[in-house]
Design a binder for these strands. Structure first.
Length: 383
DNA sequence: CAAGCGTGGTT
DNA sequence: TAACCAAGCTT
């Protein structure tokens, strides 16, 4: 290939960037960075059930805002692999936001059971109800409009606006905080560094492809610019990364150390009726496991040697110790001593109910552990 | 604004 | 094993 060919290519390349800088109001350097990222994304993007690939975005298509919203709420502090089956189940059961608004709240909680952070499920339903009542039952098409809805905060509103509505919103999640703090070697610890990170994102964000750019940054953070042992040799931004040039990308972002979790303990009671039904009750609609279903338990004390005896039982019965389960929540560890009793049919106390459909109840994982320890096999779906 | 809020996977 | 982490929001 003649030398002139390559010179011409380089020239056209620069010309292309100059044109982009004009239309996107960006500097040449930041254009170069974001163009490298988008070129990488075009080839290496992840295929995800809720995602419209860049080739279709390029044709002018946009993903369904309902799909984007549902996936974004599910993905809050939750891994992609954990979300996939829930996303499919929700879409199968409630194909539109109108369908979700028409659903029973209890059915939504049951479908969310196991995914964690249950305020998300309560807010999801409240948000669906709100959107369904809007003209034409459409999601607001702006970041500000979305931000006002329950369960939609700074990140999610920007993400939906950029991905589903092509609005040039600055999307900042945990991945992007990591990528940006390394790229610009930001020594300010989180969360203090958030405003600076957002400014940097606004700087390098190409106005032409806001949704692809946000997802490209997240894919880069998830697959290349990982928290530990980042694969910098494969990174499309390796030549621009200040942390890499100094040799310490793994050091970023700077975060305060977390204090260790205390342990709480208590007792849980699995009452089994002759027909196999289990006595359950509903937790209040706020706080830990709010709105979810549980077996009767004692209070969970801050002591490891707390109330773990039959004295805390909801009613007298031949309670037998069935085991001890441990569970780790966000801010404490829980140790529950599990008691089981075969009991004759009895009227449940107010707020309690008998259930033979354990598999479909809104039982959080900790309660499935409790029941499983008392009645091995009862929470495992045969398949 | 710091604390509260789940769960499962990785190191 | 314990620590750390994952597409954060609410109060």
């Amino acid at each position: 290939m003649p030398v002139g060919f390559w010179r011409r290519c380089a020239y056209l390349h620069r010309d292309h960037f100059k044109a982009k800088a004009q239309t996107d109001h960006m500097s040449l350097a930041t254009i170069a960075t974001s163009e490298k990222l988008l070129a990488w994304y075009d080839v290496h993007h992840r295929e995800l059930p809720w995602r419209m690939p860049p080739r279709d975005i390029a044709k002018g298509m946009l993903p369904d805002p309902y799909h984007v919203w549902l996936s974004e709420v599910m993905l809050q502090q939750t891994t992609v692999e954990a979300v996939k089956p829930y996303f499919r189940k929700f879409l199968d059961t409630w194909p539109t936001v109108t369908a979700l608004a028409a659903a029973d709240r209890e059915d939504v909680m049951k479908a969310w059971a196991g995914l964690g952070y249950y305020s998300r499920a309560r807010n999801l339903k409240a948000c669906a109800d709100t959107v369904a009542a809007l003209p034409e039952a459409r999601f607001p098409a702006s970041e500000a409009g979305l931000r006002a809805l329950p369960g939609i905060g700074a990140y999610t509103s920007a993400a939906i606006a950029a991905i589903a509505f092509n609005e040039p919103a600055a999307v900042v999640d945990g991945n992007i905080e990591r990528v940006i703090s390394r790229l610009f070697r930001i020594d300010t610890p989180l969360p203090e560094a958030k405003p600076e990170i957002k400014l940097r994102v606004e700087e390098i964000m190409p106005r032409s492809r806001p949704g692809d750019f946000a997802q490209a940054m997240m894919d880069l953070g998830a697959t290349i610019c990982t928290p530990r042992r980042p694969r910098c040799m494969l990174c499309p931004l390796r030549d621009d990364c200040e942390a890499l040039s100094k040799g310490d990308p793994e050091f970023y972002p700077v975060k305060p150390t977390k204090s260790d979790k205390p342990t709480r303990s208590g007792a849980a009671f699995v009452a089994v009726r002759p027909d196999g039904a289990i006595l359950l009750r509903k937790r209040v609609d706020k706080g830990l496991l709010g709105g979810m279903t549980e077996v009767p338990t004692s209070a969970w004390t801050a002591r490891i040697d707390g109330i773990d005896t039959v004295e805390a039982a909801p009613f007298p019965a031949a309670w037998q110790k069935a085991g001890v389960i441990e569970h780790v929540f966000t801010h404490f560890r829980l140790q529950l001593t599990v008691f089981r009793a075969e009991v004759p049919d009895r009227a449940p106390e107010p707020g309690s109910f008998w259930s033979r459909e354990i598999l479909t109840e809104a039982l959080p994982t900790v309660m499935k552990k409790v029941i499983e320890s008392a009645l091995p096999g009862s929470t495992k779906r045969l398949k």
